[in-house]
Simulated scan of single mutants.
Amino acid sequence: MATRWGLCHVGKISHDFSVDMKTLPPGDHQIVVVAARSLERAREFAKKHSIPKAYGSYEELASDAEIDMVYLDVLHTEHWRLGLLVLQAGKNMLCEKPFAMNSREVGDLIAASKKSNVFLIGVYNLQFVLMVFNGERPESIHATGVLLNSGMDEPMVVMKFPRNRLAFCFFSIAVSLPNNATISGTTGTIRATLLPHEEMARDPEIEVVYVGTTQPYHLPVGMLFMKAQKNVLCEKSMAMNLRGV
């Protein structure tokens, strides 16, 4: 039986999620409901992606008995409030990054998932692996890790793809990693590196910078690039308050 998904929000990432979901067998996963604060927007999104039901409130989504899993794609500041709504309604949840605004909110979400005995999963940069493998579905996924004293986990993921190909992913908040990716094959190697903000700001060949960091960092990162005479396109919301704007 297919896992029945509900989408919490109708933003661009939910659009991308819906498009990607269509590459999977319908017998495994189906999006059956979408919700937004506006019923009109939810209906437009549902029509565009052939989703059977649309709701004009997130409370209706949480109370729908036909949903197995909810994908949470609202603004970061709403992850805690709406995440609790979904988890306390007994729904498994896949939460877009960042997980929450602080450790207290993360703890509340984890506690709610344990109390309701449901899965709570975060989204991280495994998308890069799927891009490298051109959207292929892995044959198996194995994950391991350690739990830090802070309560956060340090995970490692191994994904096995057809024709004996492997992807290794490691993420850390405890140590400083080089922020790069290495793609190795039988005839060569490609290395992709994420430049530090300061190095990017000094690059004379860059004219426009897209700032897509988490909201609390929009102000310092945006100021860094503008002081370096770069044009900036900032993801919403622009800043945390009027002073920051």
Rank of each mutant, 00 (worst) to 15 (best):
E235M: 13
L130T: 09
A143I: 10
E139N: 09
K160E: 13
L148Y: 10
G56T: 03
S38Y: 06
S18N: 08
F171P: 03
G188R: 01
Y55D: 00
C95H: 09
H142Y: 14
A46G: 00
V209L: 04
M223C: 12
V106Q: 06
L84F: 06
I190E: 10
H9N: 14
G188W: 01
K114C: 04
N117P: 00
L61K: 06
V209Q: 02
L147P: 00
Y58P: 04
S140V: 08
L148W: 10
P25C: 05
G135L: 08
L7R: 00
E78Y: 14
A46W: 04
K114R: 14
G151E: 09
G83N: 01
S50Y: 04
N231C: 13
R43C: 01
K22F: 03
N241P: 05
E59T: 12
A89C: 05
A174G: 11
G122P: 00
E199N: 10
G6W: 03
V10R: 06
V211P: 03
Y210F: 15
A65D: 14
T214F: 10
V132L: 06
V32T: 10
S184A: 15
N92T: 02
R104Q: 13
L177P: 04
A62M: 01
G27R: 04
M223W: 10
M21P: 04
F128S: 08
E154Q: 15
P138I: 06
E205P: 01
F161Y: 11
I190A: 13
G188L: 04
Q88E: 14
I141Y: 03
H142R: 15
K48Y: 10
H76A: 15
A89R: 00
S38R: 08
R243E: 15
L109R: 03
F119D: 10
L166H: 10
A89G: 11
F161E: 01
A42N: 03
A143G: 09
F168N: 09
R4H: 15
E96W: 07
K53Y: 08
P155M: 07
I13N: 02
F99Q: 06
I31F: 08
E66R: 09
E205S: 14
A2C: 07
L24C: 03
C95W: 03
P216W: 05
N164C: 09
A36D: 11
E198H: 14
W5G: 01
M93C: 11
K230N: 08
K48W: 09
A100S: 10
L87S: 03
F161G: 05
A62Y: 00
N149R: 13
T3N: 01
P52A: 05
A111L: 12
D68V: 02
M156N: 10
A54V: 06
M238V: 15
V86M: 14
G27I: 00
P196V: 07
